[in-house]
Amino acid sequence: MSTTFVRAAARLLVVPVATSVFLAAPAPASHAVDRAVATTTLTAGSPTAARVQRKVTRVALGERAVAKARSRAGSPYRYGANGPRAFDCSGLTQWVYKKLGKRLPRTSGAQAGAVRRVGKPRRGDLVFFHSGGRVYHVGIYAGKRKVWHASRPGHPVAKERIWTRSVFYGRVR
């Protein structure tokens, strides 16, 4: 038999078998830790259990913030508006976190002072745009250098790429 024929026959046999093994394998565990599992599998009251609980809560809050911002996609921009039908930048972030039970001040500059600055952003963190020492815009970090925001008149709430390096990130407490 020729080598080409043997290789072709092997591919016909190996690929379906490998595919069926891959499809029959159990799915990997989710990256998000279930709050109930995290607290019951660890010793109640232990420092590790408390740390896991805080991390789960932060991750869940950030993901919910992104989902709330996404739910307002297409809402018109209006200066000074804080929802639910129209927004300006800080009105959107204030509205999103209010729906999640967190209070934020009204303006982007005041919001920058009310959050804890972080170096590595996670989804749901606030993105503050600054120039000359002044914060001029805020949005909700969507991951992969993208932000949900209400940018300016004529542009509805949308997810866009972060266009500058003059930003810092803050996490709502």
Rank of each mutant, 00 (worst) to 15 (best):
H137W: 00
V135E: 09
T43N: 12
R58V: 04
S90N: 02
L23S: 12
G170R: 03
E160A: 14
P28E: 13
H31E: 14
L104Y: 00
G119M: 06
Y169Q: 10
A49H: 06
R173Y: 04
P16E: 13
A142Y: 09
L92F: 00
Y97S: 04
V37P: 03
V56D: 03
V157Q: 01
Q111K: 09
Y79H: 11
W148I: 02
R122G: 06
V135D: 05
R106E: 04
A60Y: 03
G83E: 02
A44R: 15
V56Y: 03
A142P: 09
Y79Q: 07
T57M: 10
L61F: 06
L126R: 05
V172I: 06
A24D: 05
G133E: 07
G91E: 01
V147C: 06
A110R: 05
A9R: 15
L42I: 06
V21G: 13
T3C: 03
G119S: 09
R106I: 03
R173H: 13
P105I: 10
G119V: 05
K144C: 00
E63M: 07
V96L: 07
T3A: 10
R54E: 14
C89D: 13
A44V: 13
A38V: 08
R116W: 10
G101E: 08
L126D: 08
L42C: 06
E160D: 13
A8W: 12
R152L: 04
D125L: 10
P28Q: 14
L12W: 11
K68M: 13
K68E: 14
A36T: 15
L92H: 04
S46F: 00
A67S: 12
L126T: 01
